[in-house]
Simulated assay, not measured.
Amino acid sequence: MKRNKEVLEEIFEIDKPIIGMILLRPLPGSPRYDSARFGMKEILKIAVEEARTMEDCGVDGLQIENIWDFPYLKGEKIGHETSAALAVATQKVREAVRIPVGVNCHLNGGKVSLAAAVAAGARWIRVFEWVNAYVSHAGLTEGIGAELARYRKLLGAEDVKFMCDVNVKHGSHFIISDRSVEEQAHDAESEGAEVLIVTGFETGQAPDAEKVRSFSDTVGVPVIIGSGLTEANASELLKFSDGAIVGSYFKKDNNWKNPVDPDRVKKFMKSVESLRREAKDG
């Protein structure tokens, strides 16, 4: 099936965009927040430094995340302090770079992400479970597409796009085991997901090429890689996808808890640029 890539083209000015992740240190209200050692001033300083580094290394977009806020709350239980901190961080990063910025609030905090995105002028949010449901260490997580679509309408924020995981990592989908991954992708697309994200089973693990190809062949919206893309597998996986979100691989020793490694980012983006040229010439 031919995919309509207009949503990605509205946000990015390049084919197969690579989105780097700004993994904010623990935010106010989370168990690991340390106001004395890593208060908001230090959190914002690190976020801006990493954003500028990745932009200078050629990354095409940035996604702000509260990944250090585990164990995660869900949905309406996520506090206003998290939304406020995400909005401030997103605004600071957006002011520091020229590339587009998005937001992701764990765990499936779509309304928190959308509120922060609207306040800070972000271009998209990532939604882990748009439709259907799955079970993980955080319990049952249900689809939030219906309420998010209405919330976006309420806020008049149609310019903020929904990038949605299908068969999301870190969980079991046995409760919808009669639905194939391709059927789940159709579920998300038919219910308004504007970009689909395909991942491996956990952070840093890539989906296999057949899974990516199957997604791309059966839906009409863009498909991007959401985990595990590396310099070694980029050629194989980007052939079937329209871009990627990269987190762990851009960090020192391929560990998401470490600082950004500029050399890894530069080397990776040079490989992607070569792939883009080959695709254009071919």
Rank of each mutant, 00 (worst) to 15 (best):
I176Y: 09
A36Q: 10
V97M: 03
V7F: 05
E273Y: 10
P262M: 01
Y72F: 15
A85Q: 02
E76R: 09
L44C: 07
E95Y: 04
F70Q: 11
K169L: 10
E194R: 02
D261C: 01
V168R: 07
G145A: 13
W124C: 01
A96N: 06
M21Y: 04
F250N: 03
S241R: 03
K92I: 01
E191M: 15
V272H: 01
Y72Q: 13
R3Q: 14
E231G: 12
G204E: 05
V59F: 01
S248Y: 05
P17C: 08
E194W: 05
F174W: 07
I22R: 03
V246K: 00
S214K: 11
V166P: 04
R179V: 11
P31K: 03
P28A: 09
K211F: 02
F215M: 11
I197E: 07
D56E: 15
F174I: 07
A244W: 04
V195P: 00
P31R: 03
K211C: 06
K161G: 04
W130Q: 14
G58R: 06
E273C: 06
Q91Y: 14
N255A: 12
A157C: 11
G79W: 02
Y134A: 10
G79I: 03
Q184W: 05
A85T: 05
K92T: 08
L8K: 12
Y33R: 11
T90Q: 00
T141F: 07
V265D: 02
R264K: 15
A232F: 13
D69Q: 11
I225T: 07
R264W: 00
S35E: 12
M21T: 15
R123H: 15
D56H: 10
I22M: 01
Q205A: 12
W256H: 13
D253W: 02
A157H: 10
G20M: 00
V59K: 08
A84G: 09
Y72K: 06
P100S: 10
G228M: 04
V93S: 01
I43R: 01
L73S: 13
D56R: 12
P17T: 14
C164E: 04
T141S: 13
S30Y: 07
E194G: 06
L238K: 03
A89Q: 08
I225S: 03
T53A: 13
I125C: 01
V260P: 00
K257W: 11
S113F: 10
G39L: 02
M163T: 02
K77H: 14
E210M: 05
T203V: 14
I19F: 00
K153F: 07
E194H: 05
V221K: 02
L155C: 03
V221M: 01
G228R: 04
D208L: 08
V260L: 00
W124M: 02
G226V: 13
Y72C: 05
G110W: 02
G192A: 10
I144C: 14
L114C: 02
S274E: 13
S172C: 09
L86C: 02
V219P: 02
E278A: 03
R150I: 12
K153A: 14
A206T: 06
S190V: 07
N132P: 02
P222Y: 10
L238S: 05
T141P: 04
R3G: 11
E158F: 08
V166L: 08
A84L: 11
V59Y: 08
N66R: 07
V48L: 10
K211P: 03
D187G: 07
L275S: 06
H173V: 09
L140F: 11
N66V: 09
E158L: 05
N167T: 13
I11D: 07
P31I: 12
